[in-house]
């Protein structure tokens, strides 16, 4: 995996073979990329700058920033940004801390690693929509298990799904539960790449565990750690399925209180047919994701190892 040059890759065949046949091999993939990836990007950019747009007739009028102004001033979009930031800034750190802890514990086991790994990974493969149905009932204010368990600790029953202040909390809890699996597996892969000789040396020197963690494990895990952070942040910015499955799809909770950025885009386009507003929101969303991806590239260059 040493060859990572993009520009002009060394040809492993040594001889340079110019051939038009290459295009034949590339045609299917690039046809799909052109029609369903590149074209939509250009079109979405265009639609976002229209002041009004009817997609059935493909007629747009007025070119300017008014759609962006509308979206940025729209209380629903501001709420979507706020909720998404809560999921990113509160949910992601909790998920990463829990995932790192679980991965460290699993990795330190001498037996039963496989069993725990298998169990902790299940949420990754199972449908978020199906589990969301279960979470809907677990959070139910009357007969849900969450309130039932909390009652043992003297906490009064909460309206997790209907109190506008709590809806984003329940969605965040769901995203934490749902996101753990993927992060644990990445952390475990990173931990298993650390040469056991370091730990043997530390044991011979009698290094205390805390020091082993901060002086050996964390530095050697840092590339994995930062990759997981960025991937999780990008993923959290795309939160949508969790919201959709916990509510009925017509709104994101009472007063759209659990709305996220992607939900806003979907709702604007699909339920309200305001294509230019949806596009403007999508462009803002793209800029956020691009900035994060640039950060990811920068980090992966700084910390040489790749996950």
């Amino acid at each position: 995996m040493s060859r990572k040059k993009i520009g002009r890759p060394e040809n492993p065949l040594g001889n340079t073979r110019f051939s038009g046949r290459a295009y034949l091999y590339l045609l299917p993939a690039f046809l799909v990329l052109a029609v369903f990836v590149l074209y939509p990007i250009v079109m979405t950019l265009r639609m976002g700058f229209y002041e009004s747009y009817v997609y059935l007739t493909d007629v747009g009028s007025g070119f300017g920033l008014s759609s962006f102004r509308y979206v940025l001033r729209d209380p629903a979009f501001q709420l979507a940004i706020r909720n998404t930031l809560i999921i990113v800034l509160v949910g992601v750190p909790i998920t990463i801390a829990l995932a790192l802890g679980a991965a460290l514990f699993i990795n330190s086991l001498t037996r039963g690693r496989g069993v725990f790994q298998t169990i902790y990974f299940i949420p990754y493969v199972t449908s978020t929509i199906a589990i969301g149905l279960a979470f809907r009932w677990l959070f139910h204010s009357d007969y849900g298990y969450v309130n039932y368990v909390l009652s043992f600790f003297g906490v009064a029953p909460q309206k997790w799904l209907t109190d506008p202040n709590l809806t984003v909390v329940s969605v965040t809890i769901f995203t934490i539960w749902n996101g753990l699996a993927f992060k644990i597996v990445l952390f475990l892969a990173g931990l298993q790449k650390i040469d056991p000789q370091y730990y043997q040396a530390a044991r011979i020197d009698g290094t205390p565990p805390r020091r082993v963690f901060f002086r050996i494990t964390m530095p050697l895990l840092s590339s994995t750690f930062w990759m997981v952070v960025i991937v999780s942040v990008i993923h959290a910015f795309k939160t949508y399925n969790e919201v959709y499955s916990m509510y009925d799809g017509k709104s994101a909770g009472p007063g759209n209180s659990a709305i996220t950025i992607v939900y806003y885009i979907y709702d604007m386009f699909f339920n309200r047919s305001q294509v230019h507003y949806a596009s403007a929101a999508a462009i803002i969303f793209l800029l956020i994701v691009l900035a994060l991806t640039a950060l990811q590239k920068w980090i992966s260059k700084r910390f040489v190892h790749y996950v």
């Binding site: 939509p40 992607v262 294509v275 949806a278």
Partner: peptide, 9 residues
């Protein structure tokens, strides 16, 4: 490119 961006077009 997030695939969520592409759904509109």
């Amino acid at each position: 490119i997030p695939s969520e961006l592409l759904i509109i077009q």
